[in-house]
Design a protein around this nucleic acid. Sequence first.
DNA 1: CCAAGTCATATGTCAGACGTTTAATTGTCT
DNA 2: AGACAATTAAACGTCTGACATATGACTTGG
Lengths: 244, 244
Amino acid sequence: MQIDPSNTSDLSAQIAKSIRDAIVAGTLPVGERLPSESELAEQFAVSRPTVREALKRLAAQALIRTQRGATGGAFVNRLTYPEAHAQQITTATLLLSMNDVSFVTACEARYALERACAPLAAQRRTDAQLVTMQAEIVRQRDPDLTDEAFCASDITFHRALVDAAHNPVLSYQLAGAVEAMQPLMNMITYPARSRARIVALHRAITAALTARDAAGCDAGLAALAIYTEELADTVFAARAAQDR
Amino acid sequence: MQIDPSNTSDLSAQIAKSIRDAIVAGTLPVGERLPSESELAEQFAVSRPTVREALKRLAAQALIRTQRGATGGAFVNRLTYPEAHAQQITTATLLLSMNDVSFVTACEARYALERACAPLAAQRRTDAQLVTMQAEIVRQRDPDLTDEAFCASDITFHRALVDAAHNPVLSYQLAGAVEAMQPLMNMITYPARSRARIVALHRAITAALTARDAAGCDAGLAALAIYTEELADTVFAARAAQDR
DNA sequence: CCAAGTCATATGTCAGACGTTTAATTGTCT
DNA sequence: AGACAATTAAACGTCTGACATATGACTTGG
């Protein structure tokens, strides 16, 4: 492994890229121990702090993990679903919050993705998912529930719906997207949301899933999407009136 | 901004988390310049290399960008779609390659996601997307095309399909997933794939999109999904026979 | 008033050192 | 001989101080 010595700056980025490429290409398999920091420094002909900066970059992406001690070092990390999921959420959250993504765009994407797994969920849902969803519905009917708790329950409900598809890749993709969008959606729909209506739709979706009714599940999600957009319209109209 | 001084290790991770939280919370808005490395070192009561490691972690996630020179420093970066997209691809690629994701699982997720945007694509596709898709079909009919080039063309085709939904959030989510899964799919379907059949399905999908026929588009994608699974069965059967 | 040179600032990099963690090795005692 | 305790070595985590380099701002001369 060597880097371009002519490029005078950002050595740590070059080294990080070099190692990352080796990992992606499979040259460094999962669990493999990288050379020690001193050895890497010698190989790349840079100082140890520079190597360390490169390793920190990789650690931030969960590509490696480090261990101290005699048999310590940097090891190629197996990227787990929870880790990838966490990265997905932060990235998506920042993307949404920093780019003035309109509410309709986010909402549309969220429900399009969620409806994508409705057929699979209807086919494969287990009792565990149904129990989770029903429990969340019970919680959501409690009038004393704070708005924050209602949101959290909503996320759990939809997470169970996604998990019912029993496809980890879909779960990873969708749950990340849904969770990242939820704060945005809540922020906007808080003032106008009618819990009763939402709970009714949640019940309808759960019932469809119980009956393994893919079309019904899809219809429920579609209705939820429409209702959410209505809410957004109401909120935006109210804001416009207030600004006047 | 302060950190827990009792925790004796992983100071750079703590500092990175602290700054990341400030960015996510909006305390540090986009474009804002962070204090200089020396100032941060003083604030957190650590040395400059430690601060630098923390900053490199954030840079690896595209949360900040650094500039050298007199008015330089670390600035909160606006996360753009291309950046998020690139991160998405590396994460998803590693997740798939490191976790023995079965082909059917990946394939199922990929087509479920792609079908999610079929209705929107049928409704909103512009001539530009149709032109792109038709051009790729022409290229794919060239018998001299290498397997690699055929793959690349396939990605471009499906990317145009996704972009036709005209929802940047969907594009970011889906294109990342599709691109990450493509190598896996190609690796498995290479030996058995019939280009003529694939091109025929691509033509059907493009025709449906031209006619703004959402159901037809969905059907075409469904057929492509089924065909891909058939291919996988063939390949796995052949491998099993070879192993005997 | 403009242009060229100088300066200050901040990042990028290096060298060397010390502390801490951890496991393997060694040594001693039962 | 075997088990437990002390030593040792390897590696990461952090610090100090320094120098190199890029770049905008200031100063100065025409």
